[in-house]
Structure formats: C-alpha cells, structure tokens
C-alpha cells in the first residue's frame, strides 16, 4: 500500500548569520501492507512529521521514491492526494466554523457533491460521537473533541490510506483509549492507517507493525512482539531510594545497565540466575534495596539497544 525507497529531506535553517543544514530525514525505506495500522515511533525531532509531509505531497523530497496506494509520489502527486487522507500534528480546524461546516467543505474539496457531502458529514459525526457538538463553533470544543474532528476531516472522503500525525498527543488516558478504538475501527473499514507516536504503549498496543525512527533514520522495523523478541534475555528492574541509585550503579558495573531516577535496569541473559547475584552484589556494597522485578523487554529496551539512549528520557 505504501512503499518508499531512500526518501530524504534536509532543511536549511538560519540562526542569525549562520546557515545550518538539518538532515531531517536521511534515507527512509518503508513497506506498509494494506489494511494494517503502521506506526512510526521516535523521539522529538526524529523526522516523523517530515516523512509524513513528504508522503502527503506537502513537501518535495530531496531524493528517493515512493508509491502510495498505487500512485507515484513524484510523478503524480495529484493522484496521491485523491487517494490519501492526512491529519496534521497541529490540528486543522478553524475557530469560527462548526464541525459540520468543516466536514462538508472538506468533502466538497475532494470533489464530492453537496448532498453526498452532507450525508457523509452526518455519518462521521455519529461515528466519532460528535453529533452533540456538530453545530457548535470549533473554538468551544475540548482538546479531545477537536482532535476527533481533525481525524474525521482526514477520512471523510474514505481514502485508502490515512496518515495520522500524533493522533493522541495531549489527550487524557480515557480519550486516548477511545481514539485507539476509533483508529481500529478505521482499519476494520478497510483503511490502511499510518500513525506517528512517541508513546511506547501506543506503538505496542495499537500498531500491527512499527518502525522505530531516530535522527532521520529507521533503526528497526517489525511487529512490536517480534522486535522485543529480538532482544535476547530479560530485564531486571531494581527499585531504589533516589540517593542510592549512583551507589547501586557502581556496585553493578559488570552488568549492562541503565540508571533512572529511582531505579536501575539490568539487561541479563537469564533473570532467574542473575537476581541472586545482583542481590548479593548490592548487599556487599550495602546499598539499601527497595524492590526487584523481572520482566520481558519493552519497546523502550528495543530503542535503547539500537540507539544507546532511552525514549523515556525525552
């Protein structure tokens, strides 16, 4: 459904007199299958939005090729536009318009007739539980309601592929869960959904497949479960008083380890064998111990092993 080869984009940014080239996207190869929810996971500035904007025909790539829903991005951007929907990270509604007006206009911009546009607006308003507010101005909506309008605007013309740039950022946990359901519903209706996110749990729970992006490059791709399986071994998380973290790290230097505010994580081959050793080492250094847990690697651990940094720190 989406295939890209070597997609690149750099920006020239001016800071006073200095010109700096930012390589936002440095050669992205992707394959997204029909009917899946595909996720782009990466920290701020990874190049997720830039990639999406290129695929949505909003900015021209510096290099590389892409086919989206059977249309060639460079040769026929007009056809790509007809086949996709795009929801920007920053939203797209006008304060003084109502959701219904926005939806009808958007449908009509895609060439849909007036009566049909009204019908479609009615249907998506119901689908996204917006009927109650449909005729109120957008500026009166809550963040979550407004985000739902954004998504509804992106799919009103029933595209084959829809790009959602951070659909759940800024939503409370309950609205996020709702949004996930809506996104799954889009997949059930046959759409291919391409989302970006910097939430680990979102990538894990919602996406069929993900690519992890960092610094303009894809560092890993696969199903969330598959990616985690690639990291052999277990993670031992040792909870500690805040002031004991440094001492613990010192006592455990022989392990591959990450320190956090009130815990350290150790990557070990076999947790059951490692735990007694860890306890002994901490005891020998008289580090006060809080809790100890053993768990399978998370996507954050995947990111960590690929980049040497943690996503959580961002």
């Amino acid at each position: 459904m989406i295939e890209t080869r070597g997609l690149r984009k750099s920006f020239i940014s001016r800071q006073g007199r200095d010109k700096k080239t930012v390589e936002a996207v440095r050669g992205v190869d992707l394959e997204v299958a029909e009917g899946e929810i595909f996720g782009f996971l990466g920290p701020n500035g990874a190049g997720k939005t830039t990639t999406l904007r290129m695929l949505a025909t909003l900015i021209e790539p510096d290099g590389g090729t892409a086919t989206i829903a059977g249309a060639d991005l460079l040769a026929d951007p007009g056809e790509v536009r007809r086949r996709i929907g795009y929801v920007a990270q920053g939203g797209s509604t006008w304060d003084d318009s109502t959701a219904r007006e926005e939806l009808v206009l958007q449908a009509r911009l895609y060439g849909i007739g007036k009566a049909d546009a009204l019908r479609r607006a009615e249907r998506v308003l119901e689908g996204f539980q917006l009927s109650e507010y449909a005729d109120r101005k957008c500026k009166t909506y809550s963040g979550g309601q407004r985000r739902r309008v954004d998504i509804a605007l992106g799919i009103i013309h029933e595209p084959k592929v829809v790009f959602l740039d951070e659909p759940t950022t800024g939503l409370d946990p309950q609205s996020r869960a709702h949004m996930w359901d809506e996104i799954r519903r889009l997949r059930a209706e046959g759409m291919t959904v391409f989302i970006t996110t910097h939430y680990l749990d979102e990538a894990d729970a919602l996406c069929d497949r993900i690519s992890i992006m960092d610094n303009g490059e894809i560092v890993a791709s696969g199903t969330p479960a598959g990616l985690k399986r690639e990291i052999s071994g277990d993670v031992v998380r040792v909870g500690l008083p805040v002031d004991a973290v440094a001492a613990a790290a010192q006592a455990l230097t022989s392990y591959k380890l990450e320190t956090y505010e009130d815990n350290v994580r150790l990557y070990v081959e076999d947790g059951a064998v490692a735990i007694p050793q860890i306890l002994r080492a901490l005891d020998a250094a008289s580090v006060p111990l809080g809790t100890i847990e053993l768990h399978r690697p998370s996507l954050d651990d995947v990111f960590l092993t690929k980049t040497g940094r943690s996503l959580r720190e961002n």
Partner: peptide, 10 residues
C-alpha cells in the same frame, strides 16, 4: 492548519 488541510486535497 486550515491551509495545509486544503493543500492535501486535490
């Protein structure tokens, strides 16, 4: 974001 929203349509 209204302009960008228009620009992704045909």
């Amino acid at each position: 974001g209204v302009i960008e929203r228009s620009r992704v349509t045909p």
